[in-house]
Amino acid sequence: MNEQAEPKKIKNLKILIADSNVFIAKTLHSILEAFGVRKIFLCHSLKEAEKRYYNTEMDCVFVDFMMENRSGIEFIKKLRTKPGEKNDPKLPIILCTGMTDRDTIFMARDAGVTEVIGKPFSPDQVLEKLENAVNNPREFINVDEFVGPNRRRRTLNRSDFTGENDRRKNALSQNNSGSENS
């Protein structure tokens, strides 16, 4: 039987923010603080963030993509492959980026990020991404070539799908009626 884990309360999370961009980091910090999060660790360099990560148990990490000449991605890969003793390798990692082009998103996905949040972001986007990353995790893959959340998102029967023709749903109902008839 599958036991559903109790959703984590946002205010009880321990969150690491790694962003060299002072005002963006401050904005994110203020947003999280307004959400009631009490333990927020703000780091403006990757060295500082790494030290903090390996010495403190975290529930979620926000990393900026462009930090230190695009080293944010390398940092994420390191967290995934060498999670250390304090943290779970499945720890939700949210990439913050001002560049939301296809290549950047693919690079982030392949590095093992849980969610990507495009800059500029609003408080409701932060809340949505955070809740999704922490309380609605995707299956975790750990193989030689890739460590991270499943890169395929499950979209079957999405309640928020608003298009006219949901082909996945149609295919599923056709399959179901086929199996009932047989």
Partner: peptide
């Protein structure tokens, strides 16, 4: 309420 507080905080920054 959380979002309203957060929007105010962003205004300060």
């Amino acid at each position: 309420e959380m979002l309203a507080r957060a929007n105010m905080a962003v205004g300060g920054v």
